[in-house]
Design a protein around this nucleic acid. Structure first.
Lengths: 188, 188
DNA sequence: ACGGATTCGGAATCCGATTCCGCTTAGTCT
DNA sequence: AGACTAAGCGGAATCGGATTCCGAATCCGT
């Protein structure tokens, strides 16, 4: 069988990949997903061919941008949200971040959803996010802030809801977060 | 100024419009939104031009299909959900319907969302849906099932969330409905 | 049954993603 | 340093699918 030899990419290739990703992030955030591959290429100061070398498909490019956002959310969750002493606040912080990110990047998120939102969160980032959820959850269960039967899947679901609501302008997602968190409280 | 003379459309035109809409509904439900205009035309036994005569844009066609679904939900809400004696069950019934419809028509709903979900529900159907929400809400407020400060906007938001969750396979939307409804209960 | 308005059909056009390939380079070997 | 070569690059050409156009066909009022 053929062993794939994982050669390190040329330095300029890596630089270009970065430029493209950066330009795409910028453009998507600004003009939504009506951006064309050619625009991305131009903004990155690169030919279309190069864009396609690094991101074989529009969809892949979008996913790459999306992953950046998830990574960003992950970092924020670790640094800001986990620090909150109150469990409910920790969750609120986390969900709010998701809301804000999706609210800003409306353009991408339509595509993000198609790319990453359809099923489970994927890859390392996804796993890490779930782990954080688990952690907060554990805290909440033991200090009685949350119902005992709450699962990470529930948090994931609520996160998805927050994303959807803030992406489309369906309503005030802060309020939604409150309602959802109330729904997780122990029953009287 | 030119008075638009609202002449009744030719009978065959109306018939064709119906065929196209029907074919589109069918195809979207079956093959998702990867369906092409030409396919719709063929399935409807009609030329592309005719499809475009009635639905000037792919997007418009999708919206038309979507509106049918909303109408369907409206009918169900009136006939089934309002009848439930228990307020919570009435709401649950309503949300569950939304969940089921979106779960089935995954194909369309991606587009539905783009078409109708982005802002408020539109037109008569939208207004009627909100009216029903208002009605259930009123009941719930007076019998103490719901917090006094719940607004229709909240219901709309939750509806959107249910739709998003069931469309993508983010989780068990029945469970989500439970959580959300718990969140609307009066605080202890 | 006739004539003009309306609708139909589907080939032609337009637009944007994706592919292809000859030309350039970074990195390596001497 | 100079030569060599595979990895990368640019952007014209291709392809797929939505949308437009217009002569032919069909209604409907008279």
């Amino acid at each position: 069988m053929s062993n794939a030899a994982p050669r390190r990419p040329r330095t300029d290739a890596e630089r270009n990949r970065g430029r493209v990703l950066h330009a795409a992030t910028e453009l998507f955030a600004q003009h939504g997903d009506q951006v064309q591959m050619a625009d991305v290429a131009k903004a990155a100061g690169v030919g279309v061919g190069t864009v396609y070398r690094h991101f074989p498909t529009r969809q892949v490019l979008i996913e790459a941008v999306a992953e950046q956002r998830f990574t960003e959310i992950l970092r924020y969750a670790r640094e800001e949200c986990l620090a909150r002493p109150d469990t409910r606040q920790a969750l609120a912080c986390f969900f709010a971040r998701i809301g804000r990110v999706h609210e800003e990047g409306r353009g991408v998120s339509g595509a993000i959803e198609a790319a990453l939102g359809d099923t489970e969160p994927r890859g390392q980032v996804g796993a890490d996010l779930l782990a954080i959820g688990e952690e907060i959850l554990e805290r909440g269960r033991s200090d009685g802030t949350l119902r005992a039967d709450v699962k990470v899947a529930d948090l994931y679901m609520i996160a998805g809801a927050v994303a959807a609501i803030s992406r489309n302008v369906v309503g005030d997602w802060h309020r939604f977060i409150d309602i959802a968190l109330d729904g997780l409280q122990p029953r009287p």
